[in-house]
Simulated scan of single mutants.
Amino acid sequence: MEDSFKIPQLLLRYALGITFLTPVADRLGILGAPGTGNIEWGNWNNFIDYTTTLMPVFDRPMVNVMGGIATVAELLVGICLIIGFKTKYAAIGASLITFTFIVFMTLSVGIQKPVNYGVFTAAAAGLVLSRISIYTWSMDNLLNKKTK
């Protein structure tokens, strides 16, 4: 039986990976200065200011640490999804990260923000992607073929 899900799973991996890498680039100032174009933060300080509103129970140094952990996690998940390395685990990680965002965003600013930002969609996409058995055109598939 032919795998008819080759291209959709590849597109889902890329879309979800880019969904994680773009905010990282934004908060590091790579996409442009604050207030230009569609830039949400434009620098780390603006990102931490926003994150502080999502985590009002934590003081700023702790939010800085949490923001750093989230940024590293998003970077790793995004890269792994795009190249297809440890894809199942990266997809599960993507869902866990986005479910965490859903909880903090909903509790602090309401349900509309995670809906507007597509956080529910990203969480569901990660779950769907984690259930695929073979990731065609991925490092996983390439490494799996070399070990056989």
Rank of each mutant, 00 (worst) to 15 (best):
T22N: 00
T22P: 00
P23K: 07
V24P: 02
D26I: 07
L28D: 08
G29Y: 09
G29Q: 13
G29R: 12
I30L: 15
I30D: 11
L31R: 13
G32W: 13
A33W: 09
A33T: 08
G35Q: 02
T36H: 13
I39Q: 07
E40H: 07
W41M: 10
N43D: 15
N46L: 12
F47A: 13
I48L: 03
Y50R: 07
T51K: 01
T52V: 13
T52A: 14
T53K: 10
T53A: 15
L54Y: 07
L54P: 02
M55A: 13
V57P: 00
V57N: 09
R60P: 00
N64V: 10
V65P: 00
V65C: 04
M66V: 10
M66N: 02
M66K: 00
M66F: 09
G67I: 11
G68S: 03
I69Q: 00
A70M: 01
A70W: 00
A70C: 03
A70N: 01
T71N: 01
V72Q: 02
V72M: 09
V72T: 10
A73Q: 02
E74R: 03
E74K: 04
L75T: 14
V77H: 09
L81D: 08
I82G: 11
I83T: 05
G84H: 11
G84Q: 07
F85P: 04
T87N: 06
K88C: 06
Y89F: 13
G93K: 07
A94H: 05
S95V: 08
T100Q: 13
T100A: 14
V103C: 05
F104L: 14
M105A: 09
T106G: 14
Q112L: 10
K113G: 00
P114M: 04
V115G: 00
V115D: 01
N116G: 05
N116M: 10
G118H: 09
G118Q: 14
F120Y: 11
T121F: 14
A123T: 14
A125R: 07
A125E: 08
G126E: 01
G126C: 03
L127E: 08
L127S: 03
V128A: 15
S130C: 05
R131G: 05
R131M: 08
I132K: 01
I134S: 09
I134E: 11
Y135A: 04
M139L: 11
